[in-house]
Amino acid sequence: MKSLLSSLCPVKKYAVEHSFVPLMPSSESFVVSYDEYPRPLIHLFNSNCCQVMCLYLPPFLVDMCYSCDLDSFIFLSITSLYKLNPSLGKIEFINDYHLLKENRSMSSICSTNDQRLFILYRFGEYLDTYPR
């Protein structure tokens, strides 16, 4: 393990000033997101570590994942789902998902191999799937 760590070297260096810094991979690119005033901003990089896109996200981003089935990054705000297909280069609202409970906000999302997304509501009281 020590030899592996000693052989790692950075490919790019960034100064990130905020605490929300997920790194989300896909098969062909990866995304770095952090909270930048006035709303979250993502940077999409290709496999050569070159930035190919920079987009603002809807406010109140709480989690994200990559879905192979949707061929998109999925972004979760506290009340909505959005997707970004890197080929299209724009963020789209997923309008066929409705909150499971109106008085609860969503907190986590993950993708599964059976073409579904699992959505956890805040405080772990509700677990939902998309599509239902």
Rank of each mutant, 00 (worst) to 15 (best):
M1R: 12
K2S: 15
K2A: 13
S3L: 09
S3F: 07
L4G: 05
L4E: 11
L5D: 07
S6A: 04
S7V: 01
L8W: 06
C9H: 04
C9G: 00
P10M: 09
P10K: 13
V11S: 10
K12I: 15
K13C: 10
E17I: 05
H18P: 04
S19M: 04
V21D: 08
V21R: 13
L23H: 00
M24T: 15
S26R: 08
S26N: 06
F30D: 04
F30H: 09
V31F: 02
V32P: 01
V32K: 09
S33E: 01
Y34C: 13
Y34Q: 12
Y34P: 01
R39H: 13
P40L: 05
L41K: 12
L41W: 08
L41Q: 07
H43E: 08
H43P: 01
L44S: 03
F45I: 04
N46W: 06
S47A: 14
C49S: 07
C50Q: 12
V52A: 08
V52P: 01
C54V: 11
L55E: 10
Y56E: 07
Y56V: 01
L57Y: 03
P58G: 08
P58T: 09
P59Q: 13
F60W: 08
D63A: 11
M64T: 07
Y66A: 05
Y66P: 02
S67F: 00
C68K: 14
D69T: 11
L70T: 05
D71P: 00
S72W: 02
F73D: 04
F73Q: 03
F75I: 12
F75K: 06
F75W: 10
I78L: 08
T79W: 06
T79V: 06
Y82D: 04
N85M: 06
P86C: 04
S87P: 01
L88H: 14
K90W: 12
I94G: 05
I94L: 15
N95Q: 08
Y97S: 01
H98Q: 09
L99M: 14
E102V: 00
E102A: 08
R104S: 09
S105Q: 05
M106F: 04
S107P: 02
S107M: 11
S108Y: 10
I109A: 05
I109T: 00
C110N: 04
N113G: 15
D114H: 13
D114P: 01
Q115L: 02
Q115N: 11
R116A: 07
R116M: 08
F118I: 15
I119L: 15
L120G: 15
F123Y: 09
G124L: 01
G124R: 07
E125L: 09
E125T: 05
Y126H: 11
L127T: 05
D128N: 13
D128F: 07
P131R: 05
